[in-house]
């Protein structure tokens, strides 16, 4: 009786092991892919953040404001600072 079930048990056991290793390795691959995707996204966001910061500082700089401000608006400022 035992001998009758031994080989099928071994085969079933092997089959389950193979199935499990397929599942586990594909899970690892998926996790790895996700990790790398997230890492790429982080790097991309860091770059975007850096670019935005640069653009913001450029457009709020005094030199930008001076070059883009209409000349008429200077006069109240000049009067206030008594630069005449």
């Amino acid at each position: 009786m035992t001998k009758r079930f031994l080989i099928p048990t071994i085969v079933l056991f092997l089959f389950i092991q193979i199935l499990f290793s397929f599942y586990y390795s594909s899970d690892i691959i998926t996790q790895n892919s996700l990790l790398n995707d997230y890492q790429s996204k982080i790097e991309s966001l860091k770059v975007k953040n850096s670019d935005l910061r640069k653009n913001l500082s450029e457009t709020t700089s005094l030199s930008y404001l001076e070059s883009h401000l209409k000349i008429e608006n200077y006069f109240p400022i000049i009067k206030t600072l008594n630069l005449e």
């Binding site: 690892i28 996790q31 790895n32 790398n36 890492q39």
Partner: peptide, 10 residues
């Protein structure tokens, strides 16, 4: 890293 250069998590 694997063959494609991606980090192997485990």
């Amino acid at each position: 890293k694997d063959a494609t250069g991606k980090t192997i998590l485990t």
